[in-house]
C-alpha cells in the first residue's frame, strides 16, 4: 500500500510524532510534565494490523481497553508492500480520572511501518515492551509472512478474530501449525468465540430443569441468526452445541444486514424448544424454554459485543480455553 493512502487525520490522533530512537526519552518527558498523572501497566498489549483503514478504530479501542486494563499499548500498522521503506512512531498517554484530581494513565506507542519485513516488526515490538510483563498480541492480519516463529514464540496470549478472516480454513491451518511448534507457548483467544459467550451461558439456563434435560436427545434442528460477516461466530456456536449434545443437528444459518453479531438461537425437537434472543435495542437476552406444558422465561444481561469489550473480557480471564482448543478440529470440518 502506498504511503499516500494513509489518512493524515487518523495519524494525527495517534499523539505526538516522535523519532523511534527518542521514544523512551519522550515518554519520560510526558510523565515529568504533569505530576497529576500516574503511570500504570500490567501487560503489554500490541495490536498488529496491515489495514490502514483500521487505524482510527484500533486507536479508539486501545483507549477503551486501557481504561480497564492498565497496559503498555503498542499499535502497529505494517504496510509490507509500501515503498520506500519508512518507519514512523507516535506516543500518547491514555488517561482516566482517578479520585477527581489525579489521572491514571497507560502509555501508547504507535508505529507505521512501511516496507520492512518480519524481522523489523519483531524488533520494533521487542524493543518497546514494558519488561517483565506478559505480551498480549491481537493479530488482525492474516497469519502469514510477518507471523513468524521468532515473534510468536514470545507471545503469551494471541488474540484473533476468526470472523474477520476471508479464508478461515487456511488461517486455522496456520494457527494450528504455529501451535505445534515446540517454542510456541501462547494461549489463543478468538473474539468470534467470545462473542458467542452470552448465547452459550443463556443456553445453559434455558435447559436447566430436569424435564428439559431428559428430553435433550429429542432436539433435531438448530437455527442461528447472525449479522452479515459473523458466519464464523455462528459456526463456532453451532459446533459447540453439537459437541455438547454429542450429535449433529440440522443447521440453518440466517444472515441479517444489521443488529448484533448473534441475534437469536433456536433449538427445536419434538415437545421441546429453546430460544435465546437478543433484540436490536436491548442490552438483555431473552431466554424461553418450552418442555411439554412447562414454559420457563428468563432475562439475562447481554455481554457487550464491541471489539473493545470483547478484548476487555478476554483480558479479564486467565489461562487458555481448552474448550475452544477442543472445538478447532470440529470447526475445520464444518468450513
Amino acid at each position: 500500500m502506498p504511503a499516500s493512502s494513509l489518512n493524515e487525520s487518523d495519524l494525527g490522533r495517534l499523539g505526538l510524532e516522535t523519532p523511534i530512537s527518542r521514544i523512551d526519552r519522550e515518554l519520560k518527558k510526558l510523565w515529568e510534565s504533569d505530576e497529576a498523572k500516574t503511570r500504570a501497566s500490567l501487560i503489554n498489549l500490541a495490536i498488529y494490523t496491515e489495514d490502514s483503514s483500521f487505524l482510527a478504530a484500533d486507536n479508539d479501542l486501545l483507549d477503551r481497553v486501557a481504561a480497564e486494563h492498565a497496559c503498555r499499548a503498542l499499535l502497529i500498522l505494517a504496510l509490507p508492500e509500501a515503498q520506500p521503506p519508512r518507519a514512523r512512531a507516535w506516543i500518547q498517554a491514555l488517561c482516566r480520572p482517578y479520585q477527581g484530581r489525579q489521572a491514571v494513565c497507560s502509555e501508547q506507542i504507535s508505529f507505521v511501518l512501511e516496507g520492512g519485513d518480519a524481522a523489523q516488526v519483531q524488533n520494533i515490538v521487542f524493543a518497546h515492551l514494558d519488561s517483565d510483563l506478559p505480551l498480549v498480541v491481537w493479530w488482525q492480519a492474516d497469519l502469514t509472512k510477518n507471523f513468524h516463529e521468532r515473534f510468536y514464540s514470545r507471545i503469551d496470549t494471541l488474540i484473533i478474530d476468526s470472523a474477520r478472516w476471508s479464508d478461515p480454513s487456511r488461517q486455522f491451518d496456520a494457527l494450528l501449525a504455529a501451535q505445534r511448534e515446540a517454542t510456541a507457548r501462547f494461549d489463543v483467544r478468538d473474539l468470534a468465540w467470545t462473542r458467542s459467550h452470552l448465547m452459550r451461558t443463556a443456553l445453559a439456563g434455558c435447559f436447566q430443569d430436569a424435564a428439559a434435560l431428559q428430553n435433550l436427545s429429542k432436539l433435531r434442528k438448530l437455527t442461528i441468526t447472525h449479522l452479515k460477516g459473523q458466519r464464523m461466530t455462528a459456526l463456532l456456536l453451532a459446533a459447540w452445541i453439537n459437541k455438547r449434545l454429542n450429535t449433529t443437528l440440522q443447521l440453518e444459518l440466517v444472515e441479517k444486514d444489521s443488529g448484533h453479531a448473534l441475534q437469536s438461537l433456536v433449538l427445536e425437537g419434538v415437545g421441546l424448544r429453546g430460544e435465546v434472543r437478543r433484540d436490536c435495542d436491548s442490552s438483555f437476552v431473552h431466554v424461553c424454554a418450552t418442555c411439554g406444558q412447562h414454559e420457563h422465561k428468563e432475562l439475562l444481561p447481554a455481554d457487550a459485543d464491541s471489539d473493545a469489550e470483547l478484548v476487555n473480557e478476554q483480558l479479564s480471564r486467565r489461562g487458555g480455553s481448552t474448550l475452544y482448543s477442543g472445538m478447532l478440529p470440529l470447526i475445520q470440518a464444518m468450513l
Partner: peptide, 17 residues
C-alpha cells in the same frame, strides 16, 4: 442429569437453581 451446556471450564461454578 448433567446439563451439557454448563461449561465446566468457567472460572467459577455457576450455582444451580
Amino acid at each position: 442429569l448433567e446439563n451439557p451446556f454448563q461449561e465446566t471450564l468457567l472460572s467459577r461454578h455457576r450455582a444451580e437453581p
